[in-house]
């Protein structure tokens, strides 16, 4: 159904258009994290990656 793809693309394009000023504001004026804070985040997201890989392995046929 091509009309659905077009509507989805338009909707996502609208989201991008709405989010660009917010993203720009956060990048310019948002708080900056220290390397320790980013390391903690990387470890947490790494844990999520490992967990998802484990789930994928459990259902793999």
């Amino acid at each position: 159904m091509d009309w659905m793809k077009i509507v989805w693309a338009l909707l996502l394009g609208f989201f991008i258009w709405r989010m660009i000023p917010t993203a720009s504001h956060w990048l310019k004026h948002g708080p900056k994290g220290s390397s320790k804070e980013w390391m903690t985040t990387a470890m947490l997201l790494g844990g999520v990656v490992l967990f998802v890989l484990l789930l994928m392995k459990s259902v793999a046929r």
């Binding site: 991008i16 989010m19 993203a23 990048l27 804070e37």
Partner: peptide
């Protein structure tokens, strides 16, 4: 909150 900019750019 320091992740705000990174997450917004990632989403775009």
């Amino acid at each position: 909150s320091f992740m705000g900019g990174f997450l917004m750019v990632g989403l775009i």
